[in-house]
Simulated scan of single mutants.
Amino acid sequence: MEKLNGGCYCGAVRYQIASRPAWSGHCHCRSCQMALGGAFVTWAKVAAKDFAVTKGEIKTFQKTLGITRGFCGDCGTTLTYTAETEVEGQDWSADAWFTASTLDDPSIAEPKTHVFVSHQQPWIKLADDLPTFPEF
């Protein structure tokens, strides 16, 4: 498998994934809205063993116990999300979650769903026919 790369806006942080994303979707939760300053964010995931930082250092912030968001300390680009606890019966520590748009070629992480549409802003109109879920 060809290694795929991504990184932050200023280039201070670069990462590499060793597999194509196993999942990608749009998250409309209020936490993502606030953290990223947008109506929703597109996340992707690979196995944790397939994600490596190749340049710089990802800074982290934890507002909610067990949830850590990673970002570039220079330009502020959100890069990663980790959950130390099980979410909906899934062990998230086995995966590396990252913002799909930070891939050099984001088209490889085609979203398959919308999650947390219970938090969706009323001025967002979904017309892509992807499945939607009130929570994750």
Rank of each mutant, 00 (worst) to 15 (best):
Met1Ser: 14
Glu2Pro: 11
Leu4Asp: 03
Gly6Asn: 08
Cys8Gly: 07
Cys10Thr: 03
Ala12Gly: 01
Val13Ala: 08
Val13Arg: 02
Arg14Ala: 05
Tyr15Ala: 13
Ile17Arg: 01
Ala18Asp: 15
Ala18Gly: 15
Ala18Trp: 03
Arg20Val: 06
Pro21Gln: 05
Trp23Arg: 09
Trp23Cys: 02
Ser24Lys: 07
Ser24Trp: 04
His26Ile: 07
Cys29Tyr: 07
Arg30Met: 13
Gln33Ala: 10
Ala35Cys: 07
Gly37Val: 10
Gly38Thr: 14
Gly38Glu: 12
Ala39Tyr: 00
Trp43Ser: 01
Ala44Ile: 03
Lys45Ser: 10
Ala47Gly: 08
Ala48Ile: 10
Asp50Asn: 15
Thr54Pro: 05
Thr54Leu: 11
Lys55Asn: 08
Gly56Phe: 06
Gly56Lys: 04
Lys59His: 13
Lys59Leu: 05
Thr60Cys: 02
Gln62Cys: 06
Ile67Arg: 02
Ile67Ser: 02
Gly70Tyr: 00
Phe71His: 09
Phe71Gln: 08
Asp74His: 11
Thr77Gly: 01
Leu79Val: 14
Thr80Met: 02
Thr80Ala: 08
Thr85Gly: 08
Asp91Phe: 03
Asp91Val: 04
Ala94Gln: 13
Ala96Cys: 10
Phe98Thr: 08
Thr99Gln: 08
Ser101Pro: 04
Pro106Asn: 11
Ser107Glu: 15
Ile108Val: 15
Glu110Ala: 15
Ser118Ala: 14
His119Asp: 15
His119Gln: 08
Pro122His: 15
Ile124Gln: 12
Ile124Glu: 13
Leu126Ser: 02
Asp128Gln: 04
Pro131Val: 09
Thr132Met: 13
Glu135Gln: 10
